[in-house]
Structures are given as C-alpha cells and as structure tokens.
C-alpha cells in the first residue's frame, strides 16, 4: 500500500519564556490510503502539535526545525503559504475537540459550510448553498433545510460536531485530521460521531489521523496505533498487536491502568508511578526511565531508537530491542 502521508524525522520546536522545548521529536510515520491511524498519549505529549505541524498551522512561537512531511508524494514543508492554503480544507481537513470555538458564532451554519465550498471549488453562491444542505444531510442532521439557517449556539454539542464534520467533508479531503473529536461529548453522542466518521471514511476512501487519549476509542476505530510519550513515538503497531501484545513498558502501563480491563485481585488498578517529565529539562537517556519498572543503567545513558521488533511492530525500548 502506498503512503498517502509520510512523515520522516519531523522535529517541531517552541521558543517559550522558560526556554526551548521540542514538542514533536524525531517523529516518523506513514498513513496509508483508507487507513485510520490513532495517536494516543497523555496531555502534553505532542499529539496535537504533530497534527498542527502537518497542517503547517503551529502557533507563532513554534517552528518546524527538521524532517519532511510528504503528502501524495509532494513535500508540504517546501510549499508556499498560498499553496498550503489551497490544500487545507480541500485535500487535508481538520476537526477539533470543541466545535463551538471553531465555528463563527455570528454566521449561520449553512453559510459557513457554503463559504468553504465557494473558496475551494469556485461554485456560485446558490450551488454552494444547495451543496451545503446536502452535506448537512450527509452527516445526519435532521431537517437540514431549516437547520442551515441556525446559528452555532442553537445547536447541541453533538450537532455542532456534525456541522464541523460536514464542513471538513465538503471538499472531499483525502486526509482528515481529527483531534480529540469526541472528548467534549457524551458517550452516546460520541458513539454516533465515531460511527459517522467511519462511514464517511469508507464511502470516500479517505484516511484519518485520529488523536485521542481514550484507549477504548483507539481499539474500536483505528487500524494502526502510535503511542506518544513526551514528544516521541515509543511504540507503533497494528491495533490488534498493540492490544494483545503491548511491548513498551509505557504502553503496558497505560493498558493496565484502565479500570475494568485489568484490575488485580484486590480491586486495585496497576499504576504508572510518577508523572510525565517536563520537556524543559529532559535528562539524557530514555524519557520513561524514572517511571519504568524494567529500567537498567543503559536506559539512563542512551536514548533508545524506534526499532522493528516484529513485522510492523516498532518499539523504542532497550529491553525490547534486539541488541
């Protein structure tokens, strides 16, 4: 399968008042056509900055310091701002956690969708409006004719996320970046939104990069998973492999700390001691060193590389790597 999106050695750094941090550190991955890749990790691990780097929309105090992002064989990091603008929304679309902050509160939702269609497809206002109503219908909004005239505040959270998806899908993107798309939603609404994304993905043979902290969502909605920790990918594999045979101690710790998955006999959860290290003063060696139960002295001196330990299963851990 050819890669739709291929990221190689991507490094994104930020200059802050407290110093320089590397939010995305040497990340390589590939998303195939029609595939959903899940990015899991705790807050601050760099998963959102990875998605924003792909869109080249990182905040002004950050910059992409190295690596390459190739989309359908073209290098995104070499494109001009104008070329990127044409790509965003038409070829690569993005949806966010909180739809209310991404929608314009004073413009009717039908008009907001039509705007994207007019800009990217050059349709006349009337055609764009008709198409926006079809898009609303497509994402399961009842009475789309009437709803198109609503303002964002008149809709529920789930309906707003449907509108965001309608807008993202309006130009038939090849790749959808979904950053915690259901975190703000109730569980019954979440299930409907995830089903909707999956159905649209299959219908349009689209690829999805699904960012989440919820290991349940990853298990249900992705084919491949990358686990991120403190800016790095520490494990990447097919979803079945990562749930049946997690290899990195951090991945295993995450799996074991989910209630109702693996409580021990006394009803206590296994925990990962300590907390995520600060990116401002990273020690040399493995970033998981001081929380890891398997750590030995090499781990404190040298950082492990992401290596293939089984077909398609990459892990960055000295205990798992062959040498």
């Amino acid at each position: 399968m050819p890669c739709l999106l291929k990221i190689k050695d991507l490094v994104t750094v930020f200059n802050t008042v407290k110093g320089k941090i590397t939010a995305v550190d040497d990340v390589s991955l590939c998303i195939e056509e029609g595939e959903t890749l899940g990015i899991v990790g705790e807050s601050g691990c760099g998963k959102t900055m990875l998605a924003l780097s792909i869109m080249r929309l990182i905040p002004p105090n950050g910059e992409i310091a190295g690596g390459s992002i190739s989309f359908r064989g073209e290098e995104l990091l070499k494109k001009s701002e104008e070329e990127m603008r044409r790509l965003r929304g038409s070829e690569i679309a993005m949806i966010f956690q909180e739809p209310m902050t991404s929608l314009n509160p004073v413009i009717r939702i039908g008009e907001q969708i039509a705007e994207a269609i007019r800009l990217h497809q050059g349709l006349a206002a009337r055609d764009a409006h008709a198409l926006s109503i079809r898009q609303l219908e497509e994402v399961g909004i009842p009475e789309p004719q009437r709803r198109a005239l609503d303002y964002p505040h008149q809709l529920s959270g789930g309906m707003r996320q449907r509108v965001m998806i309608a807008m993202a899908m309006s130009c038939h993107p090849r790749l959808l970046l979904a950053d915690e798309p259901t975190t703000a939603l109730d569980v019954t609404i979440q299930a409907q939104i995830l089903d909707l994304i999956d159905a649209l993905k299959k219908k349009n043979n689209m690829s999805v990069l699904l960012i989440t902290h919820d290991l349940g969502i990853v298990a249900q909605s992705t084919q491949k998973v990358a686990v991120m920790y403190a800016g790095k990918i520490v494990e990447m594999a097919d979803v079945d492999d990562i749930y049946s045979a997690p290899k990195h101690p951090y991945t295993r710790g995450l799996m074991e700390s989910i209630p109702a998955r693996c409580p021990d006999q006394n009803g206590y959860l296994k925990t990962i001691p300590g907390s995520v290290p600060s990116l401002y003063d990273l020690a040399p060696g493995c970033r998981f060193y001081d929380r890891c139960s398997l750590a030995f002295d090499k781990c404190s001196r040298q950082e492990p590389n992401l290596e293939e330990v089984a077909p398609g299963h990459l892990v960055s851990c000295w205990k798992c790597n062959s040498n």
């Binding site: 529920s156 019954t188 979440q190 299930a191 409907q192 919820d214 349940g216 249900q220 979803v239 079945d240």
Partner: peptide, 20 residues
C-alpha cells in the same frame, strides 16, 4: 455506546441514537 478496550470485541448492535 462505551468503547471497549479490545479491538477484537465487535460491539453488540444496539442502535445508539438521538440526544437527551
């Protein structure tokens, strides 16, 4: 509607629909 932490368990097909 609750996601199951196991990719091999396909969820039972109770229709999850509507909003509260």
């Amino acid at each position: 509607a609750a996601p199951v932490c196991n990719p091999r368990i396909k969820k039972n097909v109770i229709a999850v629909r509507g909003e509260a």
